[in-house]
Simulated scan of single mutants.
Amino acid sequence: MREELTRSCCAWALILVVLAPATEAWRSFKVILTDVDFEANDKIVDIDVSLQNESGDSKLSIIIKTFEDIEDVQLVVDVGLETDKGNFSTLINRTLNFCKLLKQRNSDPLVRGIYEDLLKHGNLFKECPIRSGTYSLSNYKVDEEMLPSFLPEAKFRFGLVILKPKSGMIVRSTIHGRIDKSKGFDNLKRFSLG
């Protein structure tokens, strides 16, 4: 009896070990990027952006060439969900000192978490001043696990302005996308009540 119980427990443990990584791949939704618009101050930076949408995955790649050292950098972050066609309701609107964000680990945990996720996919700025050179982000895919599970199925806009406080805009970009719950495990549309 004891030997049978041990075999049964080992079998369940093996099933959990084998299936646990597969269950982490299921998301309650997918983030699909649909468009990237940007404008860069060509005296300070040159930017090349590409967006690929293949088999339900959106991957963003960026190459940034800075022509000068940049001492002080501010970020203006704006995130909105579409409420009516073409109209967005702002969820987040923040102005941050990027250099402070890099130096102080406890400053703005949300933006810092997103930036640390970006760092896993390329060689981006890790200190201030930002030195002249080439930086990149390769095949970045949004980690849906970092986002709150209660996000509605909707279109969204992510706006980012990078600027030097005394000299003006360095980069202005807007990323459009949608949150698609039909791709998730728990939220298949066939089970939808509405």
Rank of each mutant, 00 (worst) to 15 (best):
Y135C: 01
K103Y: 07
P109R: 00
T66Q: 05
C9T: 05
K65R: 14
E116T: 09
H121N: 10
E153I: 08
V18F: 09
H121T: 13
L160Q: 04
F158K: 03
R27K: 09
P148H: 03
L147P: 05
L163A: 13
M169K: 14
K166A: 11
Y140C: 01
T66G: 07
E145T: 11
N187L: 04
G177Q: 04
V18C: 14
S89G: 15
E4T: 08
L19Q: 12
L160Y: 02
I47W: 01
K120L: 05
E145V: 08
F158S: 05
L60E: 02
D108A: 05
K100G: 06
S89T: 05
N93L: 15
N93Q: 15
S132G: 08
E144F: 07
K43H: 12
E3R: 02
I70A: 01
D42L: 12
D143P: 00
I114R: 15
D84V: 14
I32L: 13
K30I: 02
N187F: 09
R27Y: 12
V171G: 00
F88K: 01
S28E: 07
D84I: 15
D78W: 14
D84T: 15
E39L: 15
R7H: 10
V73R: 00
N41D: 07
C99Y: 00
D69V: 07
L60R: 04
S138A: 13
S28I: 09
F125N: 01
P152T: 03
W12Y: 13
H121R: 11
N139D: 06
L102N: 01
K164H: 11
K103N: 09
G184S: 03
H176R: 12
I32F: 03
C99T: 01
G184M: 08
S136F: 07
T23K: 12
K59C: 06
K141S: 11
L151H: 04
L188P: 14
H176F: 12
F150C: 03
Y135H: 05
S182K: 12
S107N: 04
L16G: 13
G56H: 11
D35K: 07
S132V: 08
